[in-house]
Design a protein around this nucleic acid. Structure first.
Lengths: 215, 215, 215, 215
DNA sequence: GATGAATGAGGATTCATTCAT
DNA sequence: TATGAATGAATCCTCATTCAT
């Protein structure tokens, strides 16, 4: 946890430090993140950094918490639809996950690295994140199957895998497909309904009905 | 490219160096790979290393090439089935990709890191690897659609994305699901037909028929 | 010298700062003493510290002065015996020195470090502490010899050395021998008469009569 | 243990590094010794240092070993006298210890710091040095008492303490008394017989016959 | 061609001290 | 007067790379 000193910082400065640090941890894996680079970019002294954070790991864990909170906040803002069928819920969940990716690509990448990258303190908190996420998805699918909203022949474990892995990479794919530079200003970002929704529908189509000929 | 000196090395020694280097680049991200560790494990002198390779990047690019060649070779060894339908071909392709993951987990991981990891020389060669793979898959899907083997409502670009990203992570998923430690000896590896094939079929089912109720 | 501000502090707070600082300088050598640790333990602000003391050295010199005054005060409280012989005086002096060690182990250790430890400002004041102490002892021995209370064949300079060095280390030896943890509460401390006196008598015996066989 | 690389160094260079390092560890306590200062003085690169020694502790332990070996070698060169009485042996032992102090004041100071100073890795090897040395001395005294060569009223534990502590500080005392700068060239060093022997005899006199009047 | 010692910039972290509030 | 955030030089240590043998 950051020190109180950090939280006493002017909002703007504190956020700037977070943003820069998030960017570094999004773009480089843990070992490659350089505290020197962060303080240089943030325009603060090396010593100041260590008055805000105990060490590199402290910063990293805090950023992961920030990412988690941002995700929760976004989910809580999105109204879940009246769930008529699983794919309504699925579409909503996926859309939420992907909207997060689009809205906070750095935070998303951060979490992704924490799950799959090289992490000296992996065990400490975040290996289980992976497992937990998977188990949650699996049970969600199982329930949908039990309610008859999904094909009972579908393996819930495999479905959870497919969902998880696609969500994790969806942001990058959307950026590629829409020709967006993730570093550009938010004003130029695509709007959900007009540009992303159709692409997303294509994904849902594949996942719902499959790629096979319908004949 | 390695120097001629490297290729003049006795086959056994050369292969040992490659194997060890592949292992290092599979287990650690670029920056964390230590030349010192490699030369130590390989039992060669630091100086010798730099007579074989211009630098760390040279070694890395060479290993990626080795990985590509190994993948090609495996594909060329596997007989494609008489393609009655796209999913026969798809199953074959995916099985080939996954078999490569299983047969050469290190090489596979290497390529994965090159695509998604933290690479100082990313642009130099490997952004296009990603793009190339994607374009190839996309045209494959397009052709299958044109031949009527796939649902024409499926977006080939999205299909290529789904395929690519699932392939990339399939190895890790299989290891998790089968409770395999990727570092263990090959003898204990699951055999394709008995253990992996059923899991793979579950994936194909989802991709072919979708998760939706079939009613 | 501390600032007037420091002396204006409430007695209790001032003493607490001194006690904590003494403890730090007793337990760590000069360079390892951390101002941060002191202010943390004392519950005062970093800035406050520098309003009380010019710098680390200022604090250290002040503590040495405090230690000196404490020693003097203890000596003045102990009634010197009617000096029938030198060894009565000697025993009294040594007992006083050792009682100080036992009563104020931290202050004692502080002085010891100042004499023998690694001190950036050694020359400034404390080389002469050593010399002064030695000269004082030497003249004391000389007078005792002149009064016929000591063997005139004894070299007073050497005697002063032996006395000084033994006194300096006696505290640690007593702790070892009595199995005492110097950090424990004073209540459990051995009482002078019952436990320390016999040990001390053994020392006096050696110094007075020597180790040689008495034939 | 230093690496083979270190031992492959030209004798002169290796000895220079040792000498400088010994000097640093003699003059400063462990934490205050600066690797940067050592490599600067030795004229070698920081990286080179770490090719010779694993880390600071490795260097320190090696220097302690060097000191121990130097002591042993000096003892083995000195012929023990035909031991007519304990004080012949004692004189020889003490003279050996003190000669070592005089010949290798830095090495001696090194060992002293290891015994009594702040040492992060104290337990690792050197706390027991203190105990061992004390126990060895104690049993030596006990045997002498048993043989009737020492006054049986002398407490062997206290005698061991007196001997140990005096030996440890004798070097510094001799330097002071003889007005020697320990940093000066060896040519100006006092010769044992002419200058040191008389001083040493004064010590022996005190320890053998005591300071008390012989009446 | 092989070797391995030498290099020095860069890594994270600590800490005495200053200064604006 | 009290505060505590800011500072930056110094700490130990790592590592890719070079070069003389």
């Amino acid at each position: 946890m950051p020190t109180q000193t950090f939280f006493n910082l002017p909002e703007q400065k504190r956020q700037a430090i977070i943003d820069i640090a998030v960017d570094e941890f999004a773009e480089h894996d843990y070992k490659s993140v350089s505290i020197s680079r962060i303080v240089d970019r943030a325009g603060i002294a090396k010593g100041s950094f260590y008055q805000y954070f105990a060490d590199k790991k402290d910063l990293h864990l805090y950023l992961l918490q920030v990412a988690g909170e941002a995700k929760l906040q976004m989910l809580s803002q999105l109204q879940p639809p009246p769930a008529r069928s699983f794919f309504d819920t699925y579409r909503w969940m996926m859309s939420a996950a992907i909207q997060f990716e689009v809205a906070h690509p750095k935070l998303s990448r951060l979490g992704y690295r924490a799950m799959y990258g090289d992490l000296p303190h992996r065990d400490e908190t975040y290996a289980r994140m992976k497992q937990q996420g998977h188990e949650y998805m699996k049970s969600t699918f199982q329930q949908a199957i039990d309610r008859g909203e999904l094909d009972p022949l579908v393996d819930p474990d495999m479905a959870a895998f497919v969902f998880t892995v696609i969500s994790a990479e969806m942001g990058g794919y959307l950026f590629d497909r829409l020709g967006i530079n993730p570093l550009q200003t938010p004003e130029n970002r695509p709007t959900w309904n007009l540009e992303i929704q159709p692409i997303f529908d294509q994904l849902i189509y594949i996942l719902e009905k499959g790629m096979g000929p319908k004949a």
